[in-house]
Nucleic acid binder design. Structure first.
Lengths: 217, 217
DNA sequence: TAGATTGTTAATCGATTAACAATC
DNA sequence: TAGATTGTTAATCGATTAACAATC
């Protein structure tokens, strides 16, 4: 399908399209034009058509796009037609929240186990999955065919664990630690830097204030 | 200070600079050149200088940048020199995790209260802050001078709550609901769409596999 | 067929990188 | 002073938007 590399700018927009199309599908909307979708999502119709066309033609001239079909196709592009096995490293508050959420609203992402340094947690369950000691990691990854590791541990530990993970056959790390990770190219890293996000928010608050102050003068 | 509008691309990089400079400062590094920082962060030295210069000259020719000074200045730009009062709406797993995290590692962001629809939770404490009924929201916002509302509730409710919030003097929403919010321009919205993030990860796994398959042929 | 809307090329805009003069 | 490195302008690159021919 895709020949040339797709830019991350486009990739970042796909989940949002997927979300809107899912809603439309659920509302029973059978077809939608790039112009209608444009109004709904507050992006240009041109961008929508360009984005979709990176992956081949999903529409029909004079008709638009079939909502259900487009939804399914974008799902495939996003790899949601494959199951993913996950483990959690760091069975703290945030980790438990993620496991709980995934269990509840599944879309092919399955948590198989959690790991924690705290001996008091080892042997217990969080949100229905067992917590193991850290030294069981490599074993469980192999046995359960884990692709995705979710890292919810402090940055110092995250850096060390990433080194260990680099030698395992995992394919991705969903990194919630406040640091960048050095891993081989074969492992994809998706960072969720919550503190960065909050700082961006803080910047925008300040910026908006400033703008208002200047206008007043 | 800033006259022309700064692009969000630049703003998004500031927290990462802040992170690296904080680490350098803690390691006792007194000064750093754009070239050294470039190697460390894997971005071009040119971009670093451009980014900093959007906000005025922080460096010195022939010397580089003073780590501590630059760190403090970026902190100011990010608005971290002002305190922010926050409330949590949705005292579930994720919300509790965020409150717990913020309480522990404070940087001027203070959670004052939480709100939940569940009557069993109202009157209790989560991570040291009181949980109120939803109808107390506007009152608490005014009394506690809340700027930032953290939304960790399902999307259907989030949309409704956003409507209520639009009429309050809050300045920002940190939105963890899987939807976009329609609020006045005076309210900044920072979205953390975790499922979008996971889909991006899934895409990149798939993309990498595909690349490998093609190479083999 | 006529009208609508895509797919796609060309034009524009903005962001990144390169280069170098200014200056510590 | 000479060397180093910034601040800043100019060149390049990529992403977004506009336009329109193809076609359902």
């Amino acid at each position: 399908m895709e020949t040339k590399e797709i830019s991350q700018a486009v990739v970042s927009r796909l989940p949002r399209y997927y979300r809107y199309l899912g809603d439309l599908k659920d509302e029973g909307v059978e077809r939608i034009s790039s112009q209608e979708l444009s109004k709904l999502m507050h992006v240009t119709a041109s961008q929508i058509r360009q984005d979709f066309n990176h992956f081949g033609g999903f529409g029909q001239q004079g008709y638009g796009y079939n909502t259900e079909y487009l939804y399914r196709e974008i799902g495939k592009i996003l790899g949601l037609d494959h199951a993913h096995n996950m483990i959690l490293i760091g069975a703290g508050n945030l980790g438990s929240a993620l496991v709980g959420y995934m269990n509840y609203r599944n879309r092919g992402f399955f948590f198989k186990a959690a790991f924690d340094v705290n001996p008091a947690k080892v042997g217990t369950d969080i949100a229905g999955i067992p917590v193991y000691a850290m030294d069981q990691m490599a074993d469980v990854i192999e046995r359960e065919k884990i692709d995705i590791v979710v890292l919810t541990i402090p940055k110092q530990e995250a850096v060390k664990v990433a080194q260990v993970l680099a030698a395992t056959p995992i394919r991705a790390i969903w990194n919630f630690a406040h640091c960048d990770l050095a891993v081989p190219d074969s492992i994809q890293v998706e960072n969720v830097h919550l503190s960065d996000s909050l700082m961006r928010l803080s910047y925008n608050i300040r910026q908006h204030e400033e703008g208002r102050r200047k206008k007043k003068q």
